[in-house]
């Protein structure tokens, strides 16, 4: 008789627990979603909400770049291409190419650690969707420029605001500007 009672008790428990479960999921149905609607329902642009040390797309402030190529040597996948040309007459070195293939970059940050100046850094930008992957090859040097001298001891270098450089190149390449946060 005990087995039979257990049999029917189990069926009863099934009904009760099933009801419990359904009640829980239904209560969740009525709650507010916890996820944030990306990208246009956020209070401010997503980039502005990222933590300070996020590793976004690389950018180089070529005004302060010495063309030392430390970053290119560190890069494990060779996505940084640098060409420096020496002018024999004026004895100056010019930076003619500083390309970062953002489509290949894996955001390891080794190049940023290697940069002695600090002009190569991670921005917070990450929205780089393009119709053509080749456009993600970002040319930071548009025309040959004489390399900068390394800063003297104690000298403060004023870099361009973080992200302002790469953002310009991304929009030129065809990335969609992030929709204004806080709208709608």
């Amino acid at each position: 008789m005990g087995a039979l009672r257990e049999y029917f008790a189990a069926i009863g428990r099934t009904i009760v627990t099933l009801g419990d479960g359904l009640a829980v999921t239904f209560s969740y149905l009525l709650r507010k979603p916890t996820t944030i609607q990306y990208p246009d329902r956020t209070a401010q642009p997503v980039v502005a909400m990222l933590p300070e040390r996020s590793r976004g797309m690389l950018e180089n402030d070529v005004e302060h770049c010495t063309g030392c190529s430390m970053c290119a040597k560190q890069c494990p996948i060779d996505c940084i291409h640098i060409t420096v040309v020496k002018d024999e007459e004026t004895k100056t070195r010019s930076l003619t190419q500083f390309d970062i293939d953002a489509g290949k970059c894996m955001y390891c940050g080794l190049c940023v650690e290697a940069c002695p100046i600090g002009c190569l850094r991670h921005s917070l930008e990450f929205e780089g969707a393009m119709y053509d992957i080749n456009r993600l090859m970002l040319h930071f040097v548009t025309e040959p420029r004489v390399v900068a001298k390394p800063p003297k001891k104690g000298e403060e270098v004023q870099f361009a605001p973080r992200g302002s450089i790469v953002r310009k190149f991304l929009y030129e390449a065809g990335a969609r500007p992030p929709s204004s946060g806080g709208a709608s």
Partner: peptide, 13 residues
């Protein structure tokens, strides 16, 4: 949509 709301996300909208 039901799945999304039960999992507390907006779902296709």
């Amino acid at each position: 949509r039901g799945a999304a709301l039960i999992q507390r996300r907006p779902g296709p909208n």
